[in-house]
């Protein structure tokens, strides 16, 4: 009986003290921490290197009810693409986004300045791109053009990475690492620069052409 009383009393005290202490704690202040390295999967496939390169800008299309993206892409053998990088930079920096009203419908069009040494041409019949560019003898294998399309950003990046460069599909979780942020004419755009062994897939886009040459 003495034991029972002892238990009852001690239990009550423990319960009350535990409750009283349960709310105690210091407020958290500013803390510093090191970001631990993410361990890679030992069984992950090896990274694919390649001889073909795509560099391009993907910009949101602000045409109401259409939206989607504008694509400014340069593709070809890696060394030929590298030779055109200064001109490519000048080209994308010259991009301008304009609002036009066709009848009752507002739409957005893009304009640019063709860099010296590039020749803008009308796309071939069946090619849904807005504009295509040709190069001199040093750039015969280069393919460059402007187009629009809808769909998710990842799907479109994988069109370049997987279909055209032959790389493994880029996972949604890797998209942040693939995209570089730029600002062109006040618009937040994404720069994508990828290499791969080269793919067999063709670009298929359904959007009608917009745009104009300077």
């Amino acid at each position: 009986m003495a034991f029972r009383t002892w238990c009852d009393g001690r239990l009550a005290c423990v319960v009350l003290i535990a409750l009283a202490l349960s709310g105690c704690g210091k407020p958290e202040g500013i803390r510093e921490q090191t970001v631990p390295r993410i361990e890679s999967n030992k069984n992950a496939p090896a990274v694919v290197e390649g001889k073909e390169r795509i560099i391009g800008v993907i910009a949101p299309n602000a045409t109401p009810a259409v939206n989607g993206w504008f694509f400014f892409k340069l593709r070809g053998p890696a060394e030929q693409v590298a030779a055109q990088l200064p001109a490519f930079e000048a080209w994308i920096e010259s991009i301008r986004f304009e609002a036009r009203v066709r009848g009752k419908n507002a739409e957005e069009i893009v304009t640019w300045t063709t860099p010296p040494g590039w020749k803008q041409e009308e796309p071939a019949e069946g090619d849904p791109r807005i504009a295509v560019f040709k190069f001199g003898p040093d750039g015969e294998q280069l393919d460059c053009g402007v187009s629009t399309a809808r769909g998710g950003l990842l799907d479109n990046v994988n069109r370049w990475a997987n279909q055209q460069l032959g790389r493994p599909q880029i996972g949604a979780g890797e998209l942040d690492r693939v995209l570089q942020h730029r600002t062109i004419d006040g618009r937040n755009v994404f720069l994508v620069d990828l290499t791969g062994p080269g793919g067999k897939g063709k670009v298929m886009m359904m959007a009608p052409p917009h745009g104009k040459m300077n």
């Binding site: 602000a62 939206n67 986004f97 304009e98 609002a99 809808r150 950003l153 600002t183 006040g186 937040n188």
Partner: peptide, 21 residues
């Protein structure tokens, strides 16, 4: 607005929302 500021976000997926700022 056609111009973005630092706070503008864009939908990267979500069906017809892709590209909406």
């Amino acid at each position: 607005d056609l111009k973005d500021n630092q706070d503008t976000l864009v939908f990267v997926s979500g069906g017809r929302s892709a590209g909406v700022r």
